[in-house]
């Protein structure tokens, strides 16, 4: 419950949202699904206004030559059900979206943008999947030229703009793994872009919870590319509840160039690479459990992804031949 909420704004243009969000005198936050904002035990009493983003036309999933683009207002349920995402990367993102909230009711409300903005608080498997696919996040905010809007604008007469200095819009792209560190307070998440994988790819998502639909104590996501029976590229991330997803570069580097079928090598790489993995402990699971289980899940995810990739590599090689 937002006890001090005074204003509720609908906007149909991103610029309007940015104007409202940049007001210095009234704390305004974007409202996507609202499930987190309104469901917290300790409410944020400083919030005075919300900007509802649902009419911005940012709920979409599309594909072009650069890959998949997912609008920030796309709900988790839409992602879980979208045919495009069910086939893209072996359904990794659709599956991760499905797991990200145990309840379909929440998935019907919670959005990709909200999940990204919350980061670890979202407790979403999707973040681990985005980390492993090297997703890029498109953000929009002000630009260098400042426009004084104290007199209001003819196009937006209804907005309360007194005292607002609007910096206009500026768009930039951030790799997902830098988002939580580098996103500025007033930047709005517009969309996520994911490049298609090369030939001979395979993905896997492995997780463990206390029950079938529990938030993940630990999630492992892997994206592997195989060429001629060897790892061409390996991407592995571990995440889970209250954890920032973590890529395991040591494991990735140790495996690249190595033969896929050597499972002892895979086990050794996972064991050696997990020395970098220092997950947090909470009441659900200790750090020790997450480390042991992380090794098992990482091994399993890599093995499965590699098997799929190898098969795909073989079939595509046969196709070329």
């Amino acid at each position: 419950m937002l006890s001090n909420l005074l204003e509720y704004h609908w906007v149909e243009d991103v610029d309007d949202a940015l104007i409202l969000l940049s007001r210095p005198d009234i704390k305004t936050v974007p409202l996507a699904g609202g499930t987190y904002l309104l469901g917290q035990n300790d409410e944020d009493e400083s919030i005075q206004a919300v900007v509802d983003l649902r009419d911005l036309g940012l709920a979409y999933i599309s594909e072009d030559q650069r890959g998949i683009r997912i609008g920030s207002m796309t709900t988790l349920q839409s992602m879980a059900e979208a045919p495009l995402l069910k086939s893209f990367l072996g359904g990794l993102l659709a599956q991760a979206a499905q797991y990200s909230a145990p309840s379909p009711l929440i998935r019907n409300a919670a959005t990709l943008g909200g999940t990204l903005a919350l980061g670890a608080s979202a407790q979403a498997d999707l973040l681990t999947a985005l980390a492993v696919v090297d997703a890029e996040v498109v953000l929009r905010s002000g630009q260098k030229t400042q426009v004084d809007l104290r007199g209001g604008t003819p196009e937006r007469p209804g907005l309360a703009l007194s005292g607002v200095t609007y910096k206009g819009k500026q768009e930039r792209r951030l790799p997902y793994h830098r988002l939580s560190l580098e996103r500025r307070p007033q930047e709005l998440i517009i969309e996520v872009q994911i490049a298609p994988p090369g030939r001979g790819w395979g993905t896997a998502l492995e997780r463990v919870g206390r029950s079938a639909v529990d938030t993940a104590l630990l999630t492992a996501a892997a994206l592997v590319e195989v060429e001629n029976g060897r790892y061409r590229s390996v991407r592995l991330a571990l995440g889970g509840v209250n954890m920032e997803p973590q890529r395991l570069p040591t494991i990735e580097r140790r495996l690249e160039g190595q033969p896929v079928q050597d499972l002892r090598l895979l086990a050794a790489a996972v064991q050696a690479g997990l020395t970098d993995f220092r997950p947090p402990a909470d009441f659900r699971a200790s750090q020790g459990y997450r480390r042991v289980c992380g090794a098992n899940l990482a091994y399993r995810a890599l093995e499965e992804a590699a098997n799929i990739a190898r098969w795909r590599d073989i079939t595509s090689s046969e196709g070329r031949a």
């Binding site: 409202l31 609202g34 309840s103 379909p104 929440i106 019907n108």
Partner: peptide, 19 residues
Amino acid sequence: CTVLIDGQPRPSCVMLAMQ
């Protein structure tokens, strides 16, 4: 607290009426 919003089930306890 489930209600259907445009036919989709959603929890109305984490949804502002204005939404």
